[in-house]
């Protein structure tokens, strides 16, 4: 009986199970075949993809336990401040299996040469630095979904009215991460901390990517959808 109990896998943390169920479907970039390849097409593809990803992220956030309980104003403040961090975590996760490629979507992955040709070398470089960190940690899907929800709850927006409600959301997710690591990775007692310590690089990466998009907006050569512009402006 003792052996059977020891071999039985630990029950899945209910938060992790929930987060796995609400994981959104993959999006495709679908670059416009009518446009000639080059920086304008790449930037345009990326901005269009980001706009659709934001819609998906908003829908996903509504399924994060505790998020819908925030006031509408606070839900907006949280999303406006962290959407790009969440989006970058999605891209980093997609890029994990591919060495030296930034996988913005299943049909839009750039290696160094393609990134240079697309004028996205710098952007791809900062994404790859993040990917490198998660690859070194051998990030698992369960940890990824927890970290993504934590990135949402980790908003430091000065516009949040009820910070204690956001803190509660953060605490519940933090607790779920600790519980998951204790049950699944008891041999790595510092793993939860290591995962949380990737959040500063995620924020730094988001700031750099935001600057890239904002420069594109100022140049005015690439069409941007209204929601993307709205979210971009909210971060500036």
């Amino acid at each position: 009986i003792a052996t059977a109990t020891a071999k039985k896998p630990a029950p899945m943390n209910t938060m992790v199970s929930h987060l796995l169920v609400v994981e959104p479907e993959k999006l495709y970039a679908m670059p416009d075949p009518a446009l000639p390849d080059g920086p304008t097409k790449a930037a345009s593809t990326l901005c269009d993809l980001a706009d659709r990803e934001i819609v998906v992220i908003i829908g996903w956030a509504k399924n994060i336990p505790g998020f819908p309980a925030l006031s509408l104003a606070d839900q907006m403040s949280v999303l406006q401040s962290v959407w790009l961090e969440v989006l970058l975590l999605v891209v980093a996760w997609r890029s994990l299996p591919c060495e030296d490629e930034s996988v913005f979507a299943e049909d839009f992955a750039l290696d160094e040469e393609a990134a240079r040709a697309a004028g996205l070398l710098e952007l791809s470089g900062v994404v790859l630095q993040l990917v490198c960190k998660y690859r070194a940690l051998r990030l698992e899907r369960e940890e990824y979904v927890l970290l993504k929800a934590l990135a949402l709850a980790n908003s430091d927006s000065v516009h949040i009215e009820d910070m204690s409600a956001v803190q509660r959301l953060r605490d519940v997710l933090h607790e779920a991460l600790l519980e998951y690591e204790v049950s699944r990775r008891p041999e790595e007692p510092r793993r939860a901390g290591r995962l949380l310590l990737t959040l500063p690089l995620l924020r730094q990466t988001a700031t750099r990517v935001l600057n890239h998009f904002y420069s594109l907006k100022l140049e005015g050569k690439v069409p941007m959808h209204k929601l993307f512009l709205e979210m971009l402006e909210a971060m500036m």
Binding site: I58, G59, K62, M76, E230, M231, E233, A234
Partner: peptide
Amino acid sequence: TERHKILHRLLQEGSPSDI
């Protein structure tokens, strides 16, 4: 919310239409 009307609408109604 006037400046952020699409986000507001998506959170409130959940309708991604006509963006």
